[in-house]
Design a protein around this nucleic acid. Sequence first.
DNA 1: GCAAAAGTGTTGCCCCTACACCCATGT
DNA 2: ACATGGGTGTAGGGGCAACACTTTTGC
Lengths: 215, 215
Amino acid sequence: MEVTNTKYKNQGIHVISALFTVDKGITKILLIKRENEPYKNMWALTGGALYNDETLEEGMHREIKEKTGLENIFLKAFQNFSRVERSPVMRMIAVTYIGFIDIHKVTLLKQTEKTNNCDWFSIESLPALAYDHNEILEKALEELKESIFESDILKNLYPNGFTLPEIQKTYEAILEKELDRRNFRKKMLASHFIIDTLKTKKFEGNKPAKLYKFK
Amino acid sequence: MEVTNTKYKNQGIHVISALFTVDKGITKILLIKRENEPYKNMWALTGGALYNDETLEEGMHREIKEKTGLENIFLKAFQNFSRVERSPVMRMIAVTYIGFIDIHKVTLLKQTEKTNNCDWFSIESLPALAYDHNEILEKALEELKESIFESDILKNLYPNGFTLPEIQKTYEAILEKELDRRNFRKKMLASHFIIDTLKTKKFEGNKPAKLYKFK
DNA sequence: GCAAAAGTGTTGCCCCTACACCCATGT
DNA sequence: ACATGGGTGTAGGGGCAACACTTTTGC
């Protein structure tokens, strides 16, 4: 059916992810340099327009695949953004997600079919982003801090497992505060999200630490 | 800008609310009879297509106003639904909300400008609904049970205040289980969502109960 | 005075926080 | 042996669930 009523005509949906990592104690966000108008040459969150033949989740995973080469990223649904003027081109509603990525998996993939410029930016020093992406990112960070212990959203960060001192540093970077080592360990081990691999790995000290992984 | 790429052409957004009430211990949902195709003459949740000149929240409140006459309903954002074939007419994404309404405010408003047939249905005996609204309603009910103590979503239910025995019955109807009277009172009074009006009101017994209201 | 619902406190359990010392390894 | 981070236990406080008796009112 062709839409003729101008009240509804020419609407579209953006699927957008705030993809985070933590690298050496610094929380970073993956940004993609736009190659087309509008906002050409500006940095933006990962995403794009939804196609007619895919669900929101399918479209989001397609966009992430196209722009980073990564598949099967665990995503947490976040908010919708719908300011009328949020896109200068046509009416676009933004449906957003939050995810985490192992930084080492992306550095090799900066040149993908559709994108030849993506990079990690510390959340402390962000450029002005395309569209309303600064606002989306700011709210995503708040949500991240509130929900970080309630989900296994970090599971993509440690594909090869992690030690507790190592992942604690990641939590501290995200929450921007220090955590008690004993209480943190108790909480993580009680969560049943993680299991002991019976292997060890050295992190910062000389004594090897136990290696865990997400279920 | 005209959209020419068929991948994106003719997309639209539904804003949809599951509007609940509790009447004499029965949880009910407000349904609207559709007057137009598709799904003409079937019952549906409250909502419709988003206009180009309004945010999602504005569009949702407009739809509720048009279909029930009610304004300023407190809504909790819920999920998005995006199955490709969820609308037989064109590609529509559903953005959904959950709300509560005092049943006495709507019974007088069944005939509004755009709708001359709306009614409350017990969630125990629902008709087949238009679109994917049965699925949306089912998931909204689950969410409602999980979040009922975490928000003041019930505030529209008792515009004139409520007694604790009365609102406890409402919680029990929604949760489909009985609650301990002493623990319930402690929890409600500790929540600081509600304040004592210093008035009383009779509910089921002969002894008048204290009247409270939401802040 | 009796029926019917309103109103009230205490205990145990679990989760969370705060806090200090020994252990394993590399040099 | 010493330096460095890895690993562990306990005590107190707050929220939640289980449980029974007294109070107020209408009849």
